[in-house]
Design a protein around this nucleic acid. Structure first.
Length: 198
DNA sequence: AATTTGCCCAACCGCAGACTC
DNA sequence: GGAGTCTGCGGTTGGGCAAAT
């Protein structure tokens, strides 16, 4: 796709934009080491970076944070992403939270560049109702959205959540202790029965 | 060899909710 | 309680590179 010869939006303001240099990474990492990953505006200032706090936060979360895995998403992880997306929809941070070392940005990118195409292909291939998994995906996602609430929107599902338990609560409990992908996969095998709660 | 096209992914934006004063 | 600020999220953009022409 040919890029239109427009001015880069990265150059339109005084703060640094675009790719981070190794020097910037070092400065940021050093400040976070002493001050911790919070008060990002302050972190940016302390590091002497001509970047906004938001940019520093993103760089830390997606790149500098310890234990970040990069690239090579395994079949098992891909399967997990598909299943979690089926449950949670485009809630990338929640999905990423169940995949140790993966960031929401990476999952989102992977979904947009790989998995969404796969699903479209499947959708085109299987038009018969019993095989239309994409429709099932959409239905499941919709049900899940209504169960866990949609970006703060309140509805009568909130009442359901008060008396019932939410999947988020269950999934959140997985954060305690080391995550086991295989275990999570097996848990998600049960997802059909979960929907009987909805 | 040069140019065009398509893809990937890092980084940005806008918004909403949480937090602080 | 309200205003201002910070944080986190999902959507989008655009630079860089490889493949195709």
């Amino acid at each position: 796709m040919p890029m239109a010869p427009t001015r880069s939006r990265y150059s339109k303001r005084e703060a640094n934009r675009g790719a981070w240099t190794p020097e910037e990474d070092q400065k940021l990492a050093r400040v976070i080491e002493t001050h911790g990953p919070r008060r990002w505006k302050l972190v940016a200032a302390k590091a002497g970076l001509n970047r906004c706090g938001k940019s520093c936060r993103l760089r830390w979360l997606n790149y500098l944070r310890p234990n970040i895995k990069r690239g090579n998403i395994s079949d098992q992880e891909e399967d997990l992403i598909l299943r979690l997306h089926r449950l949670l929809g485009n809630r990338w941070s929640l999905i990423a939270g169940r995949l140790p070392g993966r960031t929401d940005n990476e999952i989102k990118n992977y979904w947009n560049s790989h998995l969404s195409k796969k699903i479209k292909q499947k959708e085109n291939q299987s038009k018969s109702p019993e095989q239309d998994q994409s429709q099932d995906l959409r239905n499941s996602a919709a049900r899940m959205h209504s169960m866990v609430g949609n970006n703060g929107e309140t509805s009568k599902t909130d009442e359901v959540m008060k008396t019932d338990f939410s999947r988020n609560e269950i999934l959140d409990s997985f954060d305690e202790g080391p995550l086991n992908l295989e275990w999570m996969s097996r848990f998600l095998e049960m997802d059909e029965s979960w929907f009987s709660f909805a």
